[in-house]
Lab assay of single mutants.
Amino acid sequence: TQTTHELTIPNNLIGCIIGRQGANINEIRQMSGAQIKIANPVEGSSGRQVTITGSAASISLAQYLINARLSSE
């Protein structure tokens, strides 16, 4: 079954999640098997909405990979 998880990434950290020309986010997508959508910046908001869709296992793996990127910054 597909589930969806949403999280907010601070604007100053979204770059390390996306990577150069989307390299990091594509790697996270491939490794986790989850669909990951990053919302466009919202004016006045300090973060970007990230939506992860997939199986429970792929979502938790995607979250783990995202958190690993954030903590390495």
Results as ranks from 00 to 15, higher is better:
T1E: 14
T1A: 09
T1V: 13
Q2P: 08
Q2C: 06
Q2D: 13
Q2Y: 14
Q2T: 15
T3S: 15
T4K: 11
T4F: 07
T4C: 09
H5E: 10
H5P: 02
H5M: 15
H5D: 05
E6S: 14
E6H: 15
E6G: 03
L7H: 01
T8V: 15
T8K: 08
T8Q: 10
T8L: 11
I9V: 14
I9C: 01
I9W: 01
I9M: 05
P10T: 03
P10I: 02
N11T: 07
N11Y: 03
N11I: 06
N11C: 07
N12I: 04
L13T: 07
L13E: 10
L13G: 03
I14W: 02
I14F: 04
G15N: 12
G15E: 10
G15F: 04
C16K: 14
C16P: 11
I17F: 07
I17Q: 01
I18Y: 03
I18C: 02
I18V: 04
G19I: 03
G19F: 02
G19L: 01
G19K: 07
R20N: 15
Q21G: 09
Q21L: 04
G22T: 04
G22W: 04
G22Y: 04
G22Q: 06
G22P: 03
A23M: 08
A23L: 06
N24L: 08
N24S: 11
N24C: 07
N24Y: 12
I25T: 04
I25D: 00
I25P: 01
I25Y: 04
I25Q: 03
N26Q: 13
N26W: 05
E27N: 14
I28A: 02
R29T: 09
R29G: 08
R29H: 06
Q30W: 05
M31A: 13
S32F: 00
S32V: 01
G33T: 03
G33S: 04
G33C: 02
G33K: 05
A34P: 04
A34I: 01
Q35H: 15
Q35R: 13
I36S: 02
I36E: 00
I36V: 08
K37P: 02
K37N: 13
I38P: 02
A39V: 04
A39H: 14
N40H: 09
N40A: 11
P41I: 07
V42N: 06
V42D: 11
V42E: 12
V42Q: 08
V42G: 08
E43A: 06
E43H: 11
G44T: 04
G44P: 06
S45A: 12
S45I: 09
S45K: 14
S45N: 11
S46I: 09
S46R: 09
S46D: 15
S46A: 11
S46G: 11
S46F: 12
G47S: 13
G47L: 12
G47V: 12
G47A: 12
G47E: 14
G47M: 13
R48L: 05
R48W: 07
Q49I: 11
Q49L: 13
Q49G: 09
V50L: 10
V50H: 02
T51E: 09
T53R: 12
T53A: 08
T53I: 08
T53Q: 10
G54D: 01
S55V: 04
S55W: 03
S55H: 10
S55R: 05
A56M: 14
A57V: 06
S58V: 03
S58H: 00
I59D: 03
I59T: 12
I59M: 03
I59W: 01
I59K: 05
S60A: 10
S60C: 09
S60F: 09
L61K: 15
L61A: 12
L61E: 14
A62M: 00
A62D: 02
A62P: 02
A62Y: 04
A62I: 05
Q63L: 14
Q63G: 06
Q63T: 12
Q63S: 13
Y64A: 15
Y64D: 15
Y64M: 09
Y64K: 15
Y64Q: 15
Y64R: 15
I66T: 03
I66W: 00
I66F: 04
I66D: 00
N67R: 08
A68P: 05
A68S: 13
R69P: 02
L70P: 03
L70I: 06
L70R: 03
L70Q: 00
S71I: 04
S71V: 08
S72L: 08
S72K: 10
E73P: 07
E73Q: 11
E73F: 15
